[in-house]
Amino acid sequence: MYKQVLRLMTICVVSISLIFMLSGVAAAKKVLKLQLVYPKTSSVAANSLFFADKVEKLTNGEVKIKIFYPGQLVKAKEGLTAMKRGMIDGYIGSMLYFAGVIPEVNGEWLPFSWKNVSEAMDIYYNYGYLDIMRKATEKHDCYYVAPISVAKMGLMTKFPINSIEDLKGKKIRAVGMEGRIVKALGGSSVALSGAEQYTALQRGTAEGTDYPWYTLRDYKFFEVVSYVSSPPLHSPGIVEILLNNKVWKKLSSDEKKAVNLAGFLTSIHSANLSEKNDREIIDFCRDNNVKIVELPNEELVKMIKVLKPVYEDHLNSSDLCAEQVETLKSYFNEMEIIHPLF
């Protein structure tokens, strides 16, 4: 579905490019500073650079995105406050750090919410999930540009998970909805930023993490964990491109269209990269002695049972959270897809 939309959006790319080429006198160039919370080796970094390139090209150089890597401007947990105060113009990364303030963020991380990138992109762009998130972030002076897919994501641990009993009391790095999931499964969540978890896993202060599988390779997590639990909790995980709302409103109408289009193209680019990473990581695990442990069906049934209250709690967190859950239900009903948690 999202590939069909991409073909239609090609017309918009040409149209917007022509608008800037034929617009006559150029406006003063705008340089926007965006804090990225992931390292240069991450797939999100690659997608961020793709976004910056598309924005510059689609605005004929009138808007430029400058990417800052972890800690160069602000720390990940400071991102929302920094945007509100105008310290940064935008943020690229997971909003789970802000889930206590923006509960709708957890709706992007509900367990087993979608099973592939096609479903995720369809739900965001054709069934209103992106609009819901824009309503949620607008309340906090932020504009949600686009979702970025970060590949299959789930539990990577120092111990095998053959049953949910194996998680009892285990210290798992998890924030926001991830923490709720870990707690529901009997584990103990450890709230650490992405940059802190390698050392925590190395030292044993964390015994596992809920994180994208491809980081076994790109972050060298294969050095500190030995097992991957399948099925993944998120297929794919989603992080966000955000802009300070004041910065967004200062853009011209044509610039806004260009930035939104760049965001959409980045979503599609990230979906393709996500699928590529998912294919490659299977061979990487085999070649580096990381065992993928498939949860037995009877244990998966138990897991789904204990995770159902997570959906119920989210539904009751706000009107927009309820709208998220209803949107998912409507999508799967319309697609005639049986969803294990509805």
Score class of each variant (00 low, 15 high):
residue 240 E to M: 13
residue 216 L to V: 07
residue 146 A to Y: 01
residue 20 F to K: 05
residue 43 S to V: 14
residue 14 V to E: 13
residue 49 L to D: 12
residue 194 G to D: 13
residue 156 M to K: 02
residue 320 L to C: 04
residue 259 V to M: 09
residue 266 T to Q: 01
residue 152 K to A: 05
residue 13 V to F: 03
residue 28 A to G: 08
residue 172 I to F: 08
residue 324 Q to N: 10
residue 245 N to M: 15
residue 271 A to K: 00
residue 207 E to A: 06
residue 260 N to R: 14
residue 139 K to G: 09
residue 115 K to W: 11
residue 321 C to E: 03
residue 111 P to R: 05
residue 98 F to S: 13
residue 159 F to R: 02
residue 308 K to S: 13
residue 246 K to I: 03
residue 2 Y to M: 03
residue 11 I to L: 13
residue 64 K to G: 10
residue 20 F to P: 13
residue 222 F to N: 06
residue 341 L to S: 02
residue 104 E to W: 04
residue 223 E to M: 05
residue 224 V to G: 01
residue 142 C to D: 00
residue 273 L to A: 12
residue 10 T to V: 13
residue 70 P to K: 00
residue 124 Y to A: 08
residue 342 F to T: 12
residue 13 V to D: 10
residue 36 L to I: 10
residue 166 D to W: 04
residue 307 L to V: 07
residue 79 G to S: 09
residue 11 I to A: 15
residue 120 A to P: 01
residue 54 K to H: 11
residue 6 L to H: 14
residue 283 D to S: 13
residue 102 I to N: 00
residue 245 N to A: 15
residue 219 Y to T: 07
residue 259 V to T: 02
residue 86 G to K: 03
residue 52 A to F: 02
residue 46 A to G: 06
residue 217 R to K: 12
residue 19 I to E: 09
residue 137 T to G: 04
residue 109 W to Y: 14
residue 73 L to C: 07
residue 69 Y to E: 12
residue 132 I to A: 07
residue 186 G to L: 10
residue 112 F to N: 04
residue 15 S to R: 13
residue 253 S to A: 15
residue 334 E to Y: 14
residue 310 V to Q: 01
residue 278 D to A: 00
residue 251 L to K: 07
residue 305 K to D: 11
residue 231 P to Y: 02
residue 163 S to C: 11
residue 48 S to Y: 09
residue 147 P to L: 00
residue 210 D to M: 13
residue 318 S to Y: 08
residue 202 Q to P: 15
residue 311 Y to M: 07
residue 109 W to G: 07
residue 159 F to Y: 10
residue 50 F to T: 06
residue 247 V to E: 01
residue 301 V to R: 15
residue 59 T to A: 00
residue 223 E to G: 04
